[in-house]
Design a protein around this nucleic acid. Sequence first.
DNA 1: GTCTGTGCAAAATCTTTGCAAGATA
DNA 2: TATCTTGCAAAGATTTTGCACAGAC
Lengths: 153, 153
Amino acid sequence: MVYINGMELSELKKQFEQFLKQKGYKITKSRLDLVDKIASYGTHFEIEDLVMWITSQDRGTASRSTIYRTIRLLQDFGAIREVIKLGNRTIYEFVAGRPHHEHLICVKCGKIIEFSREEIEELQDRVCEEYRFTPINHRLEIFGVCSECSSTV
Amino acid sequence: MVYINGMELSELKKQFEQFLKQKGYKITKSRLDLVDKIASYGTHFEIEDLVMWITSQDRGTASRSTIYRTIRLLQDFGAIREVIKLGNRTIYEFVAGRPHHEHLICVKCGKIIEFSREEIEELQDRVCEEYRFTPINHRLEIFGVCSECSSTV
DNA sequence: GTCTGTGCAAAATCTTTGCAAGATA
DNA sequence: TATCTTGCAAAGATTTTGCACAGAC
């Protein structure tokens, strides 16, 4: 069985189908295929990379438009998040089945390090309560230089 | 005297001049004027809004290119930061002379609430130490719905 | 059969850049 | 005077959209 982030992939797709049905959208090969493609591509990705990678694969040629449209659906569904915004780049992450976490981003080599701290979730709750703000999600990005890059002067 | 974020504006401009000189850039009317314009525009802004506002002012008509270029210089200088990245929008903030803080962003009305917690700075330091990562800056965005918007159903 | 999705190309945004003219040092 | 900056328009990069055809229900 194929597991993605500890969740069985076919289970995820089943849930996505439910989501589509519930929203009145259609279950298409394109949409389900894209879930496979993203799952096998890797955790973090930018849309252009994904488009090029998918296009380079023999079969399965979802158009750029469909990829953009489906990414949006997957964001609504909650399987994908924009986790890093650096300059004009947007880096997405497959988050389905994973606990929330944050990112360290090396501005020299682009390496992404994930970490999580329960304190951040608690802090969010306390701050939001204070401002009577209903949180939907949060994103903590720490930009800096990783150990390899700082040792290479 | 004009204070911006608790710092005297002419002092900030003087420091900016030093920065330019040190970098081998020239001190131009355009650049210094833009600092005034941004200071009087308000804390948070998007470039397009700033361009339109500046263009609508009688005198002072920095071109879009110059604004983009100067904003970049002010970011390097440290007076301005990209604090919110929402979809394809980038919201900047005049941070000169202010302690670091984070933002709550209402996804319904766009309201921005600032808050700061010393814990976040400490947490950043601890996490970075653990990964031997040298932090340059960080950004915590909490997206959600503010009290006004949630009471209006 | 009806309605939605897809692919394509065009358009819309947002940002950067080449170049000639102007300002700064 | 030498060099950097500016404004403009063009080019880039990224994302969205109108429309005709194809596919899902």
